[in-house]
Simulated scan of single mutants.
Amino acid sequence: MFAPQGPTFRELAVQALSSVERGYDLLAPKFDHTPFRTPEKVLASVAGVLGGLGPFDRGLDLCCGTGAGLDVLDKVCRDRVTGVDISAGMLAVAARAHPGAELVRADARALPLRAAFDLAVSFGAFGHFLPKERPNLFAQAYGALRPGGRFAFPMGAPARPGSPGHLALLGFDTAMRVRNAVWRPPFVMYYRGFGLADVGRELTEAGFSVELYALEEFGRRPDGSPRVRLVVGTKEK
């Protein structure tokens, strides 16, 4: 599951018993050697779709981590790109990989950047926010964009109930809830509650018009629906 350069079981256990911010500070030096980093196939597919919607000027990677999404922004944006994350450790790794990027340590729920960007992206971060926090999170993204700006992120189709993927997510979600019930500080990482219908409604309520693009590299399910979509919200002028 992990490359030889990745974290040990003990290191993962220490991270799991920390807060989200402290946990990622600890994991940062080895994060890119774990399966938690967004796969290159996803990044390339998203860049391909956004390339057809752009070009864009300024780009923002929301919850940028070690900077995987900055690679996408570098491909589709003409001006300097910016990454925001709450973890100083993750930003330190991103700074080494992307010396030309502007990196800002901030909580995505209270962004200090207003109406400055033409494109915002985010990869794999939404499970760190409780469902009740998402409306504000989407409002923050809306406020960071210029009129006509776009907010984009990939979403996989939900696993079929009873399938190995569904059971794995259910087990992980249950383990996290038990952990947070008996240990403080909490470590929020719940992905089963991030559904397309709720996300579309919350983006619309934040002021976005929403479009969905199939990431065809990942194929389609037996019913013909895409296995992975790119959700794109546009801040109307």
Score class of each variant (00 low, 15 high):
148 G>M: 09
219 G>Y: 08
164 P>N: 06
154 P>L: 07
120 A>I: 01
41 K>M: 07
115 A>I: 05
162 G>M: 02
231 V>H: 08
167 L>P: 00
60 L>K: 11
134 R>E: 08
153 F>S: 04
237 K>A: 15
211 E>H: 14
9 F>N: 12
64 C>G: 01
185 P>Q: 09
40 E>K: 14
119 L>T: 03
33 H>E: 06
93 V>G: 00
14 V>Y: 00
205 E>A: 15
209 S>K: 13
173 D>V: 01
18 S>P: 12
147 P>F: 13
17 L>F: 15
175 A>Q: 06
56 F>G: 10
159 A>D: 11
51 G>H: 13
128 H>Y: 13
54 G>V: 04
65 G>Y: 02
193 G>C: 12
58 R>W: 08
121 V>F: 02
47 A>I: 07
159 A>I: 03
73 L>G: 11
128 H>N: 13
109 R>N: 13
54 G>W: 03
58 R>K: 15
74 D>I: 00
160 R>C: 05
176 M>T: 03
94 A>N: 07
138 F>H: 14
227 R>N: 12
25 D>P: 04
22 R>N: 08
191 Y>E: 05
214 A>I: 04
159 A>H: 13
124 G>I: 02
69 G>T: 03
221 R>G: 09
131 P>G: 04
37 R>D: 01
190 Y>V: 03
88 A>H: 08
203 L>T: 04
16 A>I: 07
20 V>S: 11
149 G>N: 09
59 G>I: 08
67 G>K: 03
70 L>H: 10
216 E>Q: 11
209 S>I: 11
183 W>K: 10
128 H>V: 04
202 E>H: 11
7 P>A: 10
95 A>P: 01
90 M>G: 04
230 L>A: 08
190 Y>Q: 06
77 C>F: 12
231 V>E: 07
60 L>V: 00
171 G>E: 03
180 N>W: 06
235 K>Y: 13
18 S>G: 15
126 F>V: 09
72 V>E: 03
47 A>L: 11
140 Q>I: 03
183 W>S: 15
10 R>V: 01
169 L>F: 09
